[in-house]
Design a protein around this nucleic acid. Structure first.
Lengths: 348, 348
DNA sequence: TACGGCCTGGACAACGTTGTCAGATGCAGG
DNA sequence: CCTGCATCTGACAACGTTGTCCAGGCCGTA
């Protein structure tokens, strides 16, 4: 019994319920509900009495119970890779704004790029009965979400397409962006152009690599294996890869970096070289803050993370609003921003 | 009736409940509950039958109902200013990791620095019965949270203290950091040192200003009004303020920037001056990515956003674990990182 | 005055889960 | 064969809210 009592004391810290409010105001339970929800059918006088009781008791409606009853949580989930990554902050914020406009809260979680964690998180959000789910895939098999989607959880994938299921996806045009970026280097006269990217099992990485190949092929330049580094992107490894392709007689004269972490690492390597009087051209995929303040400014293929999030969220809410849509892939264009590093001519 | 039917169809998309699982497995409701929660007292055979039914129906426990029954949501809320700001991403991520370690989900929302929105968000989170609340204040009056705290919502304020109530706060040592940063400039020989900061109604801004004043006083340097700009921090205004204090015969020879948005803007102004051969020293409060890559590298007083979040979250969970603690203010130290811009000597 | 219709308010069930408790079952020992 | 005990199982209430539905009071009108 002590147990029971203790529990009763700590449950929500013993907050007042509508029943308590009703008792204090001397009205029925449902009348309180009506006042709280602004429903019609309550006289001004009754409403005043109820409102007084609410204020006196500091009553706040328990949304858990409400959710249980109504079957809608007015919340959506966002599974991303790492909120600390500057790419995801603005994306998440954009999603939040759209959610807010639709009266929903956003719950986001980081998968740390681990497929198991992505799944664990996505399913936990489903257990909470989020109305919809935005997923930035870490894994490449999303069949585990099929039952959830069939059961009515609206789902939109962002930044990368879903694996092995047919679903909405909102993506940046990685292929086109990379092709344009590399073509820009070609246009400056470069022929030996390096590519440093993530593992091709990641869709965006594969697409960017494809863009690189396409641009080189368009220019009639055969690619040498030594010019490409496709793998883990921890700074040390990228640094070594960059130094390798930048040394020897057949060193590249320009580098295309596959994502912004890579870009930053390459910038460090190149600024070391610059001190020794050697300048190498660089175009990076994805913009980053202060890219324009560096010397030289870094030319990038920019994608709009916020727009990505906004578009995906709008799509999600279209589904939630009852629109029945076929799964679709939406690709947003990228934009080449020239700032100097990409306009360095080849040094022979 | 059509209405009712429609509703029944869309409620959670008609997901199976424990009752359905029980019916299919030919067992009682409670037995399913036991299996789902791994409670003892179920024979292997029964458990297998239940598990099969669960898999066949794709059952997933409805956490809303669970929450209602148990009185704990296993989620905490974080109200911050803007998730798109690179300061908050790592902070939020750190909080998430701590929450995860305690089996809780994190719901965060952006106040956009509007006090009303902060309140709206915080109370919405309370209505969802989050177990605890982390708040990065936008407003300066948090009495509205008193009833919630009394009702048992553990609350910890982060980055800035709560206004008009007594509560936990985890802060960076803004005063000490700013004093050290300005003292560093004094040590380089500067005497005319400018300060550009946020409105002093913001606690951190006021503390940093106080640190500036203290360092100047320690050095026996009387401050001129023209050296200080305390106000809105939109880039255009900061730019004008910087240009103003950098012109005329009594122009400052060094600038202390009160936060990283200001720092970046000042860097832009100074890089313009540098092209005309004039170099001005700069120390900024708060580190930012690539600060070391700029020319010169930017000397900063760094605070550890992740540590701030981690500390606050740990404190929150200590309270949730039942520790009864007096409200306390925890100050984390800052660290001066010299990179060049702060070591520029005064130009007379 | 009697009647019908409208407005307000409240009783009750339901949402899907978990805690309580008592019943059922099985087994060993007398 | 019956009793006692331990183990397993299920009926039931409760969590706090909202939807449904009906009762009662009031008003205006005939």
């Amino acid at each position: 019994m002590g147990e029971t009592t203790r529990r009763a004391e700590t449950r929500y810290g013993n907050r007042p319920t509508m029943k308590d409010v009703a008792a204090r105001a001397g009205v029925g339970l449902k009348t309180v509900s009506r006042v709280v929800n602004g429903e019609p059918g309550v006289t001004a006088d009754t409403e005043r009495r109820v409102q007084e009781a609410i204020d006196a008791l500091n009553f706040r409606r328990n949304d858990s119970a409400r959710v249980l009853r109504k079957g809608r949580t007015a919340s959506i989930g966002l599974v991303l890779e790492d909120l600390a990554d500057p790419f995801y902050g603005p994306l998440s914020r954009a999603v939040e704004e759209v959610a807010r406009a639709h009266g929903a809260l956003l719950i986001n979680g980081s998968s740390a790029e681990e497929p198991e964690r992505e799944q664990e998180l996505a399913l936990a959000l489903c257990a909470r009965r989020v109305d919809g789910l935005l997923v930035i895939p870490a894994g490449d098999d999303h069949r585990y979400l099929e039952p959830e989607m069939r059961a009515g959880v609206a789902t939109v994938f962002v930044d990368r397409p879903a694996g092995r299921i047919d679903a909405d996806a909102v993506l940046s045009d990685s292929f086109g962006g990379a092709r344009d970026g590399v073509a820009h280097l070609v246009a400056q006269g470069h022929r030996r152009i390096g590519f440093i990217g993530d593992q091709p099992r990641i869709h965006t990485a594969a697409e960017r690599l494809r863009g690189y190949r396409a641009a080189m092929e368009d220019a009639g330049i055969p690619i040498e294996d030594a010019w490409m580094s496709l793998g883990l992107t921890d700074p040390e490894r990228v640094r070594r890869a960059a130094e390798e392709m930048l040394s020897g007689p057949d060193a590249v004269t320009a580098v295309f970096a596959g994502n912004n972490r890579v870009t930053v690492t390459v910038v460090r390597v190149l600024s070391g070289l610059a001190e020794r009087g050697r300048s190498v051209a660089l175009v990076g995929f994805d913009d980053f803050e202060l890219a324009d303040l560096l010397q030289p400014g870094v030319t990038v293929v920019a994608q709009d993370a916020a727009q990505l999030g906004r578009t995906a969220a709008e799509r999600l809410f279209s589904r939630l609003d009852g629109l029945s849509l076929d799964p679709e892939r939406i690709e947003l264009p990228t934009r080449l921003i020239t700032r100097g590093s990409g306009e360095i001519p080849p040094a022979f």
